Computed example of a mutant assay.
Amino acid sequence: MKVIAEEQWSYVLFEDREVGLITVLLGGVVNLDVTVQLTPSELSMARSDAKFAGELAASIRSNMENFREREVRPPVWPK
């Protein structure tokens, strides 16, 4: 697994065998983590734009329902 971008206590965006994944910590009463598989265009953007991962993490936090069909369970963390 190759980490592309990360922000401590927020998200980690990484690649595993050409598949892009982002694991995001969701705030609230209980901290939860969620992993979403990236589309090829999202992975390309993450590789070329340093700000993209943070923007994507914020989008996931604000409306996880838009990403639910791409959710990976259980959440994945790079080793």
Rank of each mutant, 00 (worst) to 15 (best):
Q37R: 03
D49C: 08
V12Y: 01
N63L: 14
L56G: 00
T35H: 09
S10R: 13
W77L: 08
R61W: 01
V24C: 04
E15H: 00
N66D: 14
M45Q: 09
W9E: 04
P74E: 07
D33P: 00
S59H: 05
L25N: 02
P78W: 07
R68C: 05
M1S: 13
W77T: 13
E71Q: 15
W9I: 03
G28M: 07
S48M: 06
V3L: 06
R73D: 04
V29P: 04
D16W: 05
P75D: 09
W9S: 09
K51R: 15
V24R: 01
S10V: 11
L21T: 12
P40C: 08
Y11K: 13
G28T: 10
N63F: 09
S44T: 13
V12N: 05
R70Y: 08
R47W: 06
L13M: 13
G27F: 05
E7Y: 15
T39D: 09
F67I: 10
L32R: 08
A50F: 12
Q37K: 05
L21G: 00
P40L: 07
N66L: 14
A5C: 02
M1P: 03
V36W: 03
S44G: 09
V72A: 04
S10Y: 05
V3F: 01
S62Y: 02
K79T: 15
I4E: 06
L25C: 05
P74F: 06
G20K: 02
G54P: 02
S48I: 08
R17G: 02
S44R: 09
R47S: 08
D16R: 08
V19L: 06
M64E: 15
Q8T: 08
E15M: 14
N66W: 11
S48L: 07
M1A: 11
L32Y: 10
T35D: 04
V19W: 01
G20Y: 02
A50C: 07
E55T: 15
L43F: 02
P74R: 05
G54V: 04
A53T: 10
E69M: 11
G28K: 11
Y11N: 13
P78Y: 12
M64T: 13
N66C: 05
G28E: 13
R17A: 14
N31W: 03
